[in-house]
Design a binder for these strands. Structure first.
Lengths: 226, 226
DNA sequence: CCGTTGCTTCGATCACGGTCGAAGTGTCGG
DNA sequence: CCGACACTTCGACCGTGATCGAAGCAACGG
């Protein structure tokens, strides 16, 4: 029993479907119409593509009144998209609107459930510099001597260790450098959002660093110039 | 600057190209003609596909006399294919020849440079049972108290820690359970091949467990019924 | 109840890309 | 130097699948 790599890849290999999956990478559910606009296709076309993604098991849907909410089927799918992104060619956005959004996402965005972009990489670097995390092989981080101080300053109680990977590097495909993923990365993203240090930019994965976030990150992590 | 997921996926999304990439997953270089037979297409068609894979940066080629040797471009590509395999649908091979090969690969094969299949999972389980390795988060293994005994019995001197991940689980897509990858996994595969405990099956990723391998694995790791 | 909204199904159109055989280019062996 | 071999390029053919508008189905709101 083998797997059909070509079929798996083909499910992603259409520009409209890839745009939809990309939009779903922040983990938030979206309606069919929203995804149609995201992919810049007619609702009928989007419906066609979503049916195919459902069939391939890449997304799941649940009825929500008179609309239907689509989500990525699970972390496996997000991981596959992330690793695929590493070997995918860069693309220049075609419209000004998409260009500005791409710029914003490059600066700061969520990647499934943790911080990415320049912000994500900077936070990861700062945690390493403070000894809050230390490399543990090439595929994991461990907590370091500065963990309590740094995470205390961020107002994070360390998440319990569970089935999920605790702290691992995730190669950031805009920066080509690692940022922090795993349960710890998700806890950090939750904390800075809850504190109002960063705010979601409606309709995108982009994040905006607020004024209080700028000063908070500076005092907690010596992070400057964001 | 974003990446074009659709383009990356499209490079893999053809049955012939997927078959070629799959064949290259064991890390060994192959000629264009060999890959054409692997994918069951005419040489001209294979050439067309290989040109596209080159263009996408998924494979690299070096002249070798009057033939050209193709290899995967790097570990990133192998990782992308592995994670993509996890979300790809199962496929029933169409010919008897391919069926028997698939059966053989299910039993024992190489995955890039380490052991996979039933054998790979069994070895990983045995190492865990012997305390030679212990889980260290969900993305890594650490050496355990039984490491010296087990790896000594296998005739392996532990590889030096380097840039490469040392010991990590790799989800086996036939068994749906993890086997051992990383520098340590590669060292194990090297050792059992060098000792003649397993032999490569010419032209495939499949491995055959030899009689001496059966008794050797039994005494070294209490592995039975292979 | 009926109109509006959100989504899907249907039917027709069209273009992209996979396929092959034949011919062209380069490398090895006699 | 000439034939054989490995691979690539070229040209023509064809099928799959992406696309849209129009029409068909629910679900909510007045």
């Amino acid at each position: 029993m083998h797997v059909d790599l070509a079929a798996g890849a083909a499910a992603i290999a259409d520009p409209a479907r890839a745009a939809m999956l990309d939009a779903l990478l922040d983990g938030a559910p979206r309606s069919a119409g929203s995804l149609a606009r995201e992919a810049d296709v007619a609702p009928s076309t989007a419906s066609h593509h979503l049916a195919r993604l459902l069939d391939a098991g890449l997304v799941v849907v649940e009825p929500d009144g008179r609309r239907r909410a689509y989500r990525l089927a699970g972390p496996d799918v997000a991981r596959a998209l992330e690793t695929l992104a590493v070997i995918s060619p860069p693309s220049a956005p075609r419209t000004l609107r998409r260009h500005t959004r791409a710029e914003a996402e490059r600066a700061a965005r969520t990647c499934y459930d943790h911080l990415a972009g320049v912000l994500g990489v900077a936070v990861c670097d700062a945690l390493l510099a403070a000894g809050a995390i230390v490399p543990d092989g090439e595929r994991a981080y461990a907590l370091g001597p500065g963990a309590d101080a740094a995470f205390g300053a961020l107002g994070i109680d360390l998440p319990a260790r569970g089935r999920r990977a605790y702290a691992r590097p995730c190669l950031d495909w805009t920066e080509r450098r690692p940022h922090l993923a795993g349960a710890l990365g998700a806890a950090i993203a939750d904390a800075v959002l809850a504190r109002g240090w960063v705010a979601r930019v409606r309709g995108t994965r982009a994040l905006r660093v607020t004024d209080s976030g700028r000063s908070g990150l500076r005092s907690a992590l010596s992070l400057d110039a964001l």
